[in-house]
Each structure stands twice: as structure tokens, then as C-alpha cells.
Design a protein around this nucleic acid. Sequence first.
DNA 1: CGCAAAAATGTAAACGTTTACACGAATCGC
DNA 2: GCGATTCGTGTAAACGTTTACATTTTTGCG
Lengths: 374, 374
Amino acid sequence: MPIPRDARKTRRRSNAAAATIHDVAARAGVSVATVSRVLNGIAVVREETSRDVRAAAKFLRYVPNVAARSLSIRRSQTIGIVLPDVHGEFFSEVIRGIDLAARREGYHILVSGSHNDPGEMLEVVETMRGRVDGLMIMAPDVTLAPIEELMARELPVVLLNAAARTGDAITIDNFGGARAVMRHLHELGHTRVAFVCGPLHNADARERLRGYRHAMRGMETAALRALEFQGAFTEESGFAAGQKIAASLPRPTAVFAANDSMAVGALAAFAAAGIRVPESMSVVGFDDIPIARYVAPPLTTMRVDIAELGRRAFALLLDIIINPAAHTARRERVATTLVVRGSCAVAKSASTRQTRPHRAARVPGSGREKGEVL
Amino acid sequence: MPIPRDARKTRRRSNAAAATIHDVAARAGVSVATVSRVLNGIAVVREETSRDVRAAAKFLRYVPNVAARSLSIRRSQTIGIVLPDVHGEFFSEVIRGIDLAARREGYHILVSGSHNDPGEMLEVVETMRGRVDGLMIMAPDVTLAPIEELMARELPVVLLNAAARTGDAITIDNFGGARAVMRHLHELGHTRVAFVCGPLHNADARERLRGYRHAMRGMETAALRALEFQGAFTEESGFAAGQKIAASLPRPTAVFAANDSMAVGALAAFAAAGIRVPESMSVVGFDDIPIARYVAPPLTTMRVDIAELGRRAFALLLDIIINPAAHTARRERVATTLVVRGSCAVAKSASTRQTRPHRAARVPGSGREKGEVL
DNA sequence: CGCAAAAATGTAAACGTTTACACGAATCGC
DNA sequence: GCGATTCGTGTAAACGTTTACATTTTTGCG
């Protein structure tokens, strides 16, 4: 449908449709190339011309058409984020961290959540292809990990918090964090420490378990297994585990829950069972979610800087996008920090005075030590 | 740089760059128009041709270039979501709800959070223009509301949970919910009910306050004001308010906190002050955030179906996008549900037996009644 | 003042789709 | 059996940018 350009232009200006670069060029009395150059600051343009163009653009409320631009430069200035189907503020924090970093660099983020099976995830990745310059995939489930490796050659991909063995990834220092928690409990004199485990298909859960076991090494396996309770990272499962722990004999003096939600559930179970925390039972969590400091008693936990996780992941992804050839796979680890609150006390059998734990306990901010990584 | 088309095509197929519709057409021995028709199911194409095209596309791992498509059809199949700079699972739930609904309709979502001043928000909206087919703006702050009205004529916009007086919007039934909470407390015999208010620039907070005051009507203003405590929707502010309430004389028999976070904070304050809940003090929250059921005692609260909020907002936005001309502004309200847990009991002065509140209390799911809306 | 070099700007192809219109081949009614 | 439909397919313009190259204007220098 060949419409003469000038006719088209007339129509365009008459109704309310958005102004194009041609409109700006016409109004400023220059060519589209010049307009493009001015607006992108790409080449030397005479000061006066530049002013005219800017004025025309402003007057027409010109906004470049992103699709056309993407088509031309073959980049979308957008990255995709694929999240698993899990709720909670963990994810909003991750998005926040990424968004903050991305906006600084002029990138937008396309989000898709709610996928826990490889098929659906692959489908999402497929529809994002071509729409994004790079992909960030959060796949804590070990069973999901292999999929992304397929994509790696086609699109820059960073795995968040994942179990994959290859490619670029950012993970939380779960192992080191778990060991630091255990060290804290040991310093308080606890030796009989129960563990509430997260879902076993979750890579974070596994690593935390590994840290726990590493600290408990020397115990015979049977005795160790008796101290481990299965959970699912939910308050509910933590509550159930807490009930079992309350009923177990001999009862542990401390509980390390693999995340805060389960710790909160366990706390509720102990309260219901009449077990006082921290006097008769010490409890530690992992993540430092916001309510951790408002439960009774305030929860001692391992803080994970989630926004930092997002920030670092974006930096890594950008590095790949900018120079895919020169990039060599990196795997980074985000440190964790012990936050001491009121849910732990000196073990009954081991202590004399109430003040000792305060000397022994790490102050917030020093939770991770040199050389404790894997 | 005029490169003959066939030369270009050769280059293209030789290195690893993505296949285009031309490659598919060439391989299937048809024209690009036919390929487009097959892949979009837009017109009648002979079964055999269709098969060939599909096979060629599959073989070449063809994925349509979204930018080119957007440019051509002048739509991006993407909607933008602008969130304020607030954390917490409320937002991840909203995104979840929208994402679910959007994906079903083949839409993607572009997210941008972290804006609490009009300037930054406007900037974000500006950069999203042209990139999205419609916008969803969450602006609980009354001061932010006016901005979007500017945009309304340029781009389909739905306000979530906002204070604007015009345009399309989805809001929570804060007023009705607050009244239902108060009715529940009245039925338990409470007349001296304190209120912990959210930030006054927040429209949700204002409506909940209005519901509270409506229920307390008949009280003289001075006495009423003495029962209102300022908070900020945070646990911390709830804790502070709880301390003040604990010290106030005569002490209220119940507290209605404008959100769960503050209710949790107040609970902690009462525990610290030795005030037993629910025996000496009833507490109700608003939102039903996940931990609500795991604090001690489990919190009675008003549930807001957040995912539903997102779902309805998307449906509304889609309606505008599809037929902007025929659309007439709608303002919808999402209902809330009273969830009775253990944080409320019959008022001391009014009751005889412990069982009565259970008869009087509404069961979960029946919190909202006909005719109680504004 | 004249000419070469540098600077500023213009021209038009390319990015990969969609789709109005054109066109040839079946199919139909009589 | 032959014009009129219908059906299937192809051709090429259009979407709004960017940018290589061409062209014009300015500047510098003898």
C-alpha cells in the first residue's frame, strides 16, 4: 500500500499518533540522520543544530520507537528474569536488586515467574529469546539445572543460586554460612544440635545440610541422622519438625533450621509445647527475612544480602552481553553474615554464667571468615 | 551498504546467526508471506504447504524477531508494571498474579520498582512508552496519584490500589474490610478499640482509618483521637505503637492495626510488656501475610487476595488495550475476607464464658457482607 | 584568494516482520 | 466447456530506526 511519504506525514501530525524521527527532522529542518546523531550523542554536530533538534523533539514530545531501534541495532536493552514458582519476599528483593543495577545501565527487565517444571521453563525461555539481550535464571532445584546449559550458547545466561555445574552463576555461600552457624552454637556449648532440612531437590537446602554435617563430623551416622528432620522451607513444615524435636529423646539443646520460615514454625511449635526459647532450646535460622527480628524471641540467623545477589548477577550478565567472546565462565559466591539476636543461649550443661555467650558470640557483620569457603 | 540479498543470505546461513523468515521461506520453497501466514495461523494455507513450512521452521530453529514484529504490527505484547519502592511479599504476589494472567494471553511483563517520588516515576513511565502496550501503576501514595492522569490519554493505564480520582483503577475494599474488622470486635464485646494507623499519605491507610472511624462514630472526637496511634506500616512502628498502647490509661481492650506487619510489632510489644494476648488484649491485623498464622498467638486478620488483585488488573488493562475507543473508565474493588485465628477473645467486661466468641465469630470466608461496601 | 583537508550533514540501504493487493489455478454453475 | 468465483500464493511497501558512504560546507594554510 504505497502511500506517498508526505501524505503519510500529514495524516500523522493531524491525529494524535506519536511523532517519529522524520517529524522531528522536518521541524528542525535537518535530516533524520542528524536527529539520530544528536539524540544518541554519537557524533559531532554543530551546537546550534543540536539545539534546534532538541527543541523540535521536545516540542513534538518525541520518544524513539524502541522496536525500530532494537531492530536496527539488534539489541533490546532488556534482560529477562526467570523465577521459580515460589512466593515470598525473597523474590521481590532479588528483582529489586537487579532492577536497581539494571536501570543504572539503561536496561529494562522482563520478568516471568511461576515455573517449576523444566518444560514450562524452557517454553518461557523460548518466548524470551529475541526479546532480551541476556537471561537470568533462578533455579534452585537441582532437577531444573540441566536445561539452561542448552541455552548457554545461544544467549548470555547467568544462573542465580543454582545447582548447575557449568556456565556462569552466582550462588549464596550456603556451606560457609551453615558452618558459621554451627560454630556459633558450638561456642555456646551446644553439641547436640538438631537440623531442620529444606527440600532435598533444592540446591541451597543441600549445601546447608552439607555445612551442618561437616560441623557434626565425628558423630556416627546413625546418631547424626536421628538429629536431622525433613522440612520444606515452609513455616508449616518447620512447625511439624519442631513438634518432633520437642518429643525426641534425648532432646537436643539447639536447633538449626535451614531457613527462617522453618525456624519461625519451629518457634511456634516450641511455644505450644511449653519449651522455652532460648532457656531450654536455642534456635537459629538462615536468610534473615524481615520478620526474623519480630518473632518472640527475636531470631538469631544468617543474613543473606539478597539485593547484593541481584546486583552482582546483573554485573556478571552485562559483562557477558558486552563481550561474549572474551568472557570466560565465572562462578561467584555471595557471603553471608551472622546476626545474633535473642533465640540462642549458652547450653545448660556447659555454662556457668549468662554473660559468656555475649563475649563468645560474633557481632553482626563478621559472620563470614577467611578460608571457610568450601 | 547495498549487499545483494542472496549474498546476504549466504553469509547468514553460514555463520551461527539466527534464521530469519526468509531462510524458512527459502527452505520450504515458498514466499515469506506464506511463512508468516502459517506461523500466525492467519489465513487459509494448503495443508501440505503448511507442513513444509513448519518443518523448515523447526529445522532451522526459527524464532520470529520480536522487534521486527512489534515494529510491523505496532504492538509489543508487553505490559509495564511500575511499583513503588516498598519491599515485602505483597509485591511479589502482585507480580505473580499479573504474570499468570498475562502469560495466558501471550503477554510479557516489564517490571520497574523502586520509585517513590513523582519525578522518578514519570521518568520510568517515559522510558516504558513505546516499549509496552499498556501500563499498570501501583501508587498507594496520594501525592503520586496525579502524575498518571497525564499519561492516561497516551497509553492505556490501570492504577492499582491507588488514590486517583479518575481513570481506571483496581482498589482493595479497605473501608469495607476495616468495618468488618470492627464489627467482629464489637461482637466480641469490645468498645474501647485502639487503632494503629498507616502512613497518612498512603491511600490504603486512609481508607482503613476511615472504616475504623466510621465504626467508632458516636464517640466524641477527643476521646477518639486518644485511641488512634500513628504508625508507618512497619513492624518497628507497630512495636512502638504497642508500647504506647500498653502504657495508656484506661487501656483499650482491643487493637486494630492497619496492616499485619504493625500487628506483629504490637504483639511483640505486648509480650515484652507482659500483656497477654488474647486474654487481656485482642489484636487484629489486615492483609493476612503468610507469617500471620505463625506468630504467637496466630493473628486474626483481614485477608486480601493479592493474586486476584493482579489478575483483575490485567483483565481490565487488556480490555482497554484491545478496544481503547469503546472502553469506559472502570473502578473495581477487590473484596477482603475475615480470617479468625487466636488473637482475639471476648472482652473482659462483657463476657461470661470462653466459648461465646466462637459462636459469635465469623468463620473464615464470610468476612464480607452484602451492602457493606462504601 | 584558492585549494586541500576537516567538519557537518544528507541519502538511502538495512534490520525482519506483516499485509494490501495482484495474480494464477482450481472449482463451480449453467 | 466457459466465464465467474473462490482459493492459495507471491510481490513489495511499510513499520521507525541506525549508519556507511556521499555530499556539502567550513576551516586552515600558503
